[in-house]
Design a protein around this nucleic acid. Structure first.
Lengths: 222, 222
DNA sequence: TGGAATCAAATTATCTATAATCTTTGGAGA
DNA sequence: TCTCCAAAGATTATAGATAATTTGATTCCA
C-alpha cells in the first residue's frame, strides 16, 4: 500500500497553484508569499519554494532573487509568442505522430471534439480541446516535445480563461474536423498546415461590448 | 554595491552542476546526492534541492519522488528529438529576427563563425557556435522562445562533448556562412531552410576507428 | 546447497523549526 | 521636499527531526 497521495507536498502545491493561475483565480502580478502559501497548505516554506521553482519553469510565475515570486503577466506579445511556439512544435509533433495514428486514435480525437462542441462552460471546453490535441500528438513518442507542448497549452489556457470569463458561446470546431479528415486521407502535410494555422489563430483583438467600451477579447481557436 | 555574488546559492550550485553535466564530468545516470553536493559547496541541502529542480526543468537531470535525482541519460532517440525541436524553434526565431537584423549583427555572427573555425578544442568551438546562433536569433524579441532554445542548446552541447571527447578536428562551417549570405541578400526563407537542415544534422552514426572497433560517434553541425 | 522471502539497520530524501540577511517602508531631521 | 536611518516584513539559508527506500544479513523452504 502507498500513502494517500503519491506526489510530494511540493508537487501538490505547485499543481494547486497552477490550477488557480490558469483559471485566473490568481491574477497576473499577484505576489506569492511563501509563508502565506505554506500556512494555507499546512506545510513549511521549503516545499513551497520548490513548488515556486516548478511554476517558474512552466512559465506561470516569475521570480526575482531576494524579491519574491509573482504570477507571470502576459502581454499581447506573449500571447502571440506562445501561439507561434505551439504552432511550430505541434506541427512537428503531428508530423512524427502521423505514421503511428490508428483509426481508433482518430476516432478518440473526434470524440473529444464533439465533447467540446457540447460543453456549456469554458472549463470543460478547454479540457476537451486539450484532450483532442494530446490524443493526436502523443503517438509521436517524443516525451520532451510533449512536455514542452503541455506547458504551452497551460499558458494558452490562461488567455482563454481570461478572455472568456463572461461571455461564452459554443461553436463547432471545424478546424479539428478538417485535421481529422486530412489525416484519414493520408494528407499529412495538409493536416499539419491546418493545425499550425489553427493554433496560430489565438489572436488578441479588441471587441466592442454592450456598454460601448471596447474591451480586449481574445479569440482562441486552439 | 552588491555582494560578491549576485546569484543565490541555489542558482550558483545549479550553474556549476549544469557545466559538469554538459561537459560530461558528471556522466549520465550518476546519482546526485544532496548531502554530498551540499557538503562540497559548503552549503545546506535546501538550496541544493532548489538547484535540482532547476536542472530538472532544463532537462539535465531527472528526479523520482523519494528516490533521488540522477543525471539525465540521452539515447539516440533523444538526440534526434532535441535536434528536431531546435530546428523547429530556431527557424521560427530566425523568421522573426530577420526583419530586425542589421549589418552589424550579421558581421558579429560572421565573427563568431570565424572564431569557431580557429578554435583548437571542443569547448571554445561550442562557445563560438552558441554565440553565432544566439547573435542571429536574439533579435526576435521573444524571451520565452529564446529560453527554450538555450535549454536545447545545452542538451545539444552534451552530445557534442560526449562525441568529441577524444578526436577533434577543425572544419570551416560552410552552413553558417551560407545562412549569413542568404540573409544579406534578403532571402529569409532560404536562410531558414538552411538553418533547419543544419540544426537537424546532429545525427548519431557509427564511425570505424583505428582499432577496427566501430564506436559510436556523433556528427554535430549545429 | 541454492534461492526466495523477511526483517532490521543504515542511508537518503523530505519536511519542520529557527536563525540570519536582504528589501522595503515609514518617519525624523535638515 | 529630500535624505537618511531605523524598524518591520519577507526571502534565503541552517540545523535538526521524520519518513521512506535501499541494503545486507538471516531464516525458511525447495
Amino acid at each position: 500500500m502507498r500513502s494517500p497521495s503519491e506526489d510530494t507536498i511540493a508537487v501538490r502545491i505547485s499543481k494547486a497553484l497552477a490550477e488557480r493561475i490558469i483559471a485566473g483565480t490568481l491574477e497576473p502580478g499577484t505576489r506569492l508569499r511563501q509563508d502565506h502559501v505554506a500556512a494555507e497548505f499546512g506545510a513549511s516554506h521549503v516545499p513551497v519554494r520548490e513548488a515556486f521553482r516548478r511554476l517558474e519553469a512552466q512559465g506561470l510565475a516569475v521570480s526575482e532573487p531576494r524579491r519574491g515570486v509573482r504570477v507571470a503577466a502576459f502581454s499581447k506579445a506573449e500571447v502571440r509568442e506562445v501561439a507561434e511556439m505551439r504552432a511550430a512544435l505541434e506541427e512537428l509533433a503531428l508530423r512524427h505522430a502521423a505514421p503511428n495514428l490508428t483509426a481508433a486514435i482518430l476516432d478518440a480525437a473526434e470524440e473529444a471534439t464533439r465533447a467540446g462542441d457540447k460543453s456549456r462552460d469554458v472549463g470543460s471546453w478547454e479540457a476537451a480541446n486539450r484532450a483532442f490535441h494530446r490524443t493526436l500528438l502523443a503517438p509521436c513518442n517524443m516525451p520532451r516535445l510533449m512536455a514542452a507542448i503541455d506547458d504551452l497549452h497551460a499558458a494558452s489556457a490562461r488567455f482563454l480563461f481570461a478572455a472568456w470569463r463572461s461571455d461564452w458561446e459554443t461553436r463547432t470546431d471545424h478546424d479539428h474536423l478538417a485535421i481529422l479528415a486530412a489525416l484519414r486521407q493520408g494528407e499529412v502535410d495538409h493536416a499539419c498546415s491546418i493545425l499550425a494555422r489553427h493554433v496560430r489563430a489565438v489572436t488578441p483583438r479588441p471587441v466592442p461590448t454592450a456598454s460601448g467600451v471596447t474591451r480586449r477579447l481574445f479569440v482562441v481557436d486552439g
